[in-house]
């Protein structure tokens, strides 16, 4: 039969099963090779494309590696001062309650500099979604220790490893905000394997769907790698993340909504 399909016959527009979403601009992503940020960006944009809400969505970009997210995401975006993305998103959502509003933040932005904004926005139960990319390090500024850095983890500012006696313990901010009555859906996912990518996409879809209900804040943490900050190859950093990050930051839903 027609077993001998040539490459040219297969590569036809009607046979596409996976392609880059049109809501990402043609700009080359500014991230290091193998960084989870690119996958996280793509999943958010794919979800917005599939829900067909690109004209109703406003994103807030943080400070950090993903500071240029507004260059890559082809929707309405606002860039906020360091850590203040949830506060800016609160203002946008209160002015435009029918829009879908999300923030995209790293761990230095959300868990260190913006801890106050994050906790109070979650506590007020603003109807926004927060996408939190946690790689346990300040990636953009050169790999300094963040509140989410693991005990004993070597960074630029803890060259002998994080000493919990003087530097404290990793801040599990996702578990923290799950305690607050203002949050509606809190989950932790990762994007290092195809199965985890699919789960993360489902979580992002839920975060946008639940925004229609106006019942509270949806918080999606994405545990990610920082191969250049951790001084590893992309694959090594993913393996290291599985072995070391996941025991401290276990994947799964932390707070499921009571519908």
């Amino acid at each position: 039969m027609n077993d001998i399909l040539t490459r040219e016959e297969i590569i036809a527009p009607e046979n596409i099963v996976y392609e880059r979403t049109c809501l990402l601009t043609d700009c080359a992503l500014s991230y290091c090779p193998g960084c989870g940020h690119g996958t996280a960006h793509r999943l958010i944009m794919e979800t917005i494309e599939e829900m067909n809400i690109q004209s109703e969505t406003i994103g807030v970009a943080p400070v950090g590696c993903s500071v240029l997210a507004y260059e890559f995401m082809d929707i309405d975006m606002q860039q906020a001062a360091h850590g203040r993305a949830p506060a800016v998103a609160t203002g946008i959502k209160r002015l435009y309650p029918n829009k879908f509003v999300f923030t995209y933040q790293g761990d230095g932005d959300l868990a260190a500099i913006g801890t106050g904004e994050t906790l109070h926005t979650c506590n007020r139960g603003e109807n926004i979604a927060i996408f939190f990319v946690n790689n346990g390090i300040y990636g953009m500024t050169g790999g300094q220790m963040a509140p989410t850095t693991l005990p004993g983890m070597k960074t630029a500012t803890s060259p002998f490893g994080r000493d919990t006696a003087s530097m404290g313990y990793p801040l599990k901010i996702t578990e923290l905000v799950a305690q607050l009555p203002g949050t509606f859906y809190v989950t932790r996912q990762s994007v290092h394997t195809p199965a985890n990518v699919r789960k993360t996409k489902k979580a992002i879809e839920k975060a946008f769907e639940y925004q229609k209900l106006n019942r509270g804040l949806c918080f999606v943490e994405i545990v990610s790698n920082c191969n250049s900050g951790w001084k590893m190859t992309p694959q090594e950093s993913n393996d290291w993340m599985e072995a070391n990050m996941f025991p401290t930051y276990p994947l799964g839903d932390i707070k499921l909504p009571k519908l």
């Binding site: 996976y18 960084c35 989870g36 690119g38």
Partner: peptide, 18 residues
């Protein structure tokens, strides 16, 4: 491959072979 590619560089095509 398309799912894990951080840069979205891979387009995947699939056909059913009878």
């Amino acid at each position: 491959c398309g799912l894990v590619c951080p840069d979205g560089a891979i387009t995947v095509y699939r056909v059913k072979v009878a």
